[in-house]
Structure formats: C-alpha cells, structure tokens
Nucleic acid binder design. Structure first.
Lengths: 128, 128
DNA sequence: CTTGACCCTCCAGCGGCTGGAACCTTTATA
DNA sequence: TATAAAGGTTCCAGCCGCTGGAGGGTCAAG
C-alpha cells in the first residue's frame, strides 16, 4: 500500500504520516522505487494514532498508549492513568476557555456595535 | 522605567516584552547604556496587550484592537466584530474539547483500572 | 511520448513565546 | 576599592505538531 491509500484509509494527511515516520511511530518498508510500502499493521497503527490524537492525547502520550496497546500483559490501570491525566488537562483547558468566554461575552453584550466610538470592550482592555 | 519594572507592573515576562518589541508592538526609547526605557504609555500598551491576550485574542487581533483603541473616532462596531469572531473561535474550541471530553470520560469510566490487561480505552482506540 | 497523478527529500514556517549562551552595566556589600 | 549579585543586552535555538513548497523522480494511461 502506498502512502496515498494509507492516507485515505487512515484519514491522516500523507504529510502527517511521513512526519510520524520521522518521529519513529511507524517504519514502513520501502519498494525498489523508494516508495513507502505499508501493510495492514502499519495502517492500523496509524488509525490508532489518529484516534488518540483526536482525543487530545499528545504525541508522547500516544507513544505510551501504543506501547501499552502492543503489550498484551499491560495493566489497564496504566492506560487509565494516562487517560485521566489527559482528561484533567482537557478540563483545565475548558475551564480556561470558559473563563475567557464569560468575560468576553459580557463585554460583547455591552458593546453597542454601532458607529459611535464608545466601546466597553476597549475600555475594559485599557483599564490600567 | 527598565524592563524589569515594566514586567512587574504589566504582569508580562521581560522576554515577552522584548518579543513584543520585536514584532513592533512597542518601541521603547533607549538609554545611553542601551537599556530599554519605558514610559507610562508603553506600560499601558503592554498591560492592554496582556489583557487582550488573556482573553484569547491573537497577536494580529491585538494589533487591530490596539489601533482601534488609539483611534478616537473608531466605530465600536469594528471592535465588536473582532471580539465576536474571537468569541466564536473560543466557542468552537470549547465544543471540540467537550466532544473529546465526552468520549474520553466515557472510556475512562468503563476502564477497570486494575492489574488486568482488558482495557476499553485501548480497545476503542484500536477499533479499525 | 507526453501528460498528469503520484511519490520522494529537504528546508522553512506557523504562533507565541521561552531557554540559554555570552556578554555588558549597575548596585550592594565586604 | 574590589567584587559579586542582580539586572540589562543580543542572538540563536527549540517547543508542538504539523504544513507548505521547491525541486525532483516514478508510474499508468492515452
């Protein structure tokens, strides 16, 4: 399987797949023409990776998860720990964004948004 | 005022202030010793900037907001437009994160997290 | 034999800083 | 007065996770 098909089937851009090879995530074989040649296993890995990234896991987390995935004797506790840490990071980000959102939506709501120069948004930002 | 004091009073790291000078946000005078010399106006600008960044505005948005702030005849509509766009970007990010959070917390909740290898988190990620 | 789709490598850049090296200046202390 | 600590300077590199583009090679169809 060439990179184009793997890209299609995994949902990852070819560029990203090459990058994942660079950082040692997959090591596809090479044909005589120099083209990468992927098997089902590599495709599966990449799909796993794409999903994990989609759930907000960092590349390093993915490395850990991948290793656990391939270790038949792993303890689910190890996986859960990684996932829970990710979950709290996500929660922290959501909280940050919601705090921003609160302030900003308040300001937006109070701004006339017309041709006059008076603007509570700028007033707030400029409060020294 | 040297950079250290501006850093303290604006809440921004000195490094960041130097960076903001690099990208043309402030242009402090220089003393004979080469040290940056900030006035109240620069401090105020930096504080504005810090607040705007804290509300999630991009550097480019900040540039726009700063210009509007300094333009006494601006229309509040122009400011509001920028703020609203930022608000929808924040909303989009929150929605993304909440989708992740939903899936992930579901998986975490269903993972025993003990010494056994069975793990719905990995199972889900590996679903080809 | 050419066209066009695919593949390759390598380098640069995104945003917004941040760390560190290597150096100079000012201030406080012994 | 010597010196050490605390501040300032520049410049270059790196963070994350890709992404774009240049400049090429390869392959299948017409």
């Amino acid at each position: 399987m060439n990179i184009g098909e793997v890209a299609k089937r995994s949902g990852l851009p070819a560029k990203t797949i090459r990058y994942y090879e660079d950082i040692g995530f997959v090591t596809p074989a090479r044909g005589d023409n120099g083209y990468r040649s992927f098997g089902e296993k590599e495709l599966h890995k990449l799909t796993f990776l794409g999903r994990a990234r989609g759930l907000g896991f960092s590349i390093e987390d993915c490395r850990t998860l991948m290793a656990l995935y391939e270790d038949q004797g792993r303890a689910s506790a190890d996986v859960k720990r990684v996932a829970q840490r990710n979950l709290s990071e996500i929660d922290a980000k959501i909280a940050d964004l919601q705090a921003m959102r609160g302030t900003l939506s308040h300001l937006v709501a109070n701004c006339a948004g017309d041709g006059r120069p008076d603007c509570p948004i700028l007033e707030d930002l400029g409060r020294g």
